[in-house]
C-alpha cells in the first residue's frame, strides 16, 4: 500500500503538469490511481487535505461545485477581477 507521502507526491506532480490549472477531485483521483492503482479515494482525499493544510493546494469553488488547484498556478479570478489581492 502506498504511503500518504507517496500519494501527495503524485498529486503535486499531477497538479503541476496537468493542462488545467484547476481540476475536480475525480481527475486527481484518476491521476493518482494511474500511478498507484490500489490507492483508495479516502486515502487520496486525506492526502489532498494534507496538501491543502500545508498550503500547497487550494480549493476553487463555484458555489455549486468545487475544484482543486496548485496554489499560485493559473489565473486567479480574484486578482484578475478586482485588481486587488487580499
Amino acid at each position: 500500500m502506498a504511503s500518504l507521502d507517496e500519494i501527495k507526491k503524485v498529486i503535486v506532480d499531477f497538479a503541476t503538469n496537468t493542462k488545467k490549472s484547476k481540476f475536480y477531485f475525480k481527475d486527481m483521483e484518476k491521476a493518482v490511481q494511474k500511478v498507484i492503482p490500489d490507492a483508495k479515494s479516502r486515502e487520496i482525499k486525506k492526502a489532498a487535505t494534507a496538501l491543502i493544510n500545508e498550503g500547497t493546494l487550494v480549493y476553487f469553488s463555484t458555489g455549486s461545485s468545487t475544484m482543486y488547484g496548485l496554489k499560485g498556478r493559473g489565473i486567479s479570478l480574484e486578482t484578475e477581477e478586482t485588481g486587488k489581492a487580499d
Binding site: 493544510n53 476553487f60 468545487t66 479570478l77 478586482t82
Partner: peptide, 18 residues
C-alpha cells in the same frame, strides 16, 4: 463570481462575490 475565496482548509461555506 469570485471563486477562490474561502477560509483556510475548507472547500465550502463561503460564496465569493464581487
Amino acid at each position: 463570481h469570485g471563486g477562490i475565496v474561502g477560509v483556510f482548509g475548507y472547500g465550502g461555506g463561503v460564496i465569493g462575490r464581487y
